[in-house]
């Protein structure tokens, strides 16, 4: 009696279902994680690409500006500007240069009286 009653009960195999559900969930989570990570990788790759591009652009712009500064401050350009703007700069004649002799007594930087006697005489 008991035996036959047990046969027709069809008890639910909770453990097996749980295993399947858990396995499926793990697989699903793993799959979703994979897709999510793949997506993240793609996004970070895109950010990396954009930043690299920006870096190159900034470096290029900086290089271009640096070269422009070099060109504008080159001797050739400065001399052209000097000639064009007629600043009237005159080189100092050799006989108009006053040379102050260095002391050779090994004493330091103490203040000394300097006299240009004879100036404009």
């Amino acid at each position: 009696m008991n035996r036959s009653r047990r046969n027709i009960t069809h008890s639910i195999k909770v453990a097996s279902i749980f295993k399947v559900v858990v396995s499926t969930a793990i697989l699903a989570i793993a799959g979703l994680t994979y897709v999510y990570l793949k997506n993240q990788l793609q996004q970070y790759g895109e950010i990396q690409r954009r930043l690299e591009h920006e870096l190159i652009e900034i470096r290029t712009a900086s290089e271009a500006v640096r070269v422009q500064i070099t060109q504008l401050s080159s001797r050739a350009v400065l001399e052209k500007k000097l000639a064009k703007n007629s600043l009237g700069l005159v080189p100092i004649a050799s006989d108009q240069i006053v040379r102050l002799n260095q002391r050779h007594d090994g004493i330091g930087d103490e203040l000394r009286v300097v006299s240009n006697r004879g100036f404009n005489q």
């Binding site: 006989d95 006053v98 040379r99 005489q121």
Partner: peptide, 24 residues
């Protein structure tokens, strides 16, 4: 470069040359 000889006065130069020579 430091001149090694006296620089002859140039036309139009002012009295500064005297100082230059004396200091040298």
């Amino acid at each position: 470069l430091r001149p090694t000889e006296e620089i002859p006065p140039q036309p139009g130069a002012n009295g500064l040359k005297k100082v230059a020579l004396s200091t040298r």
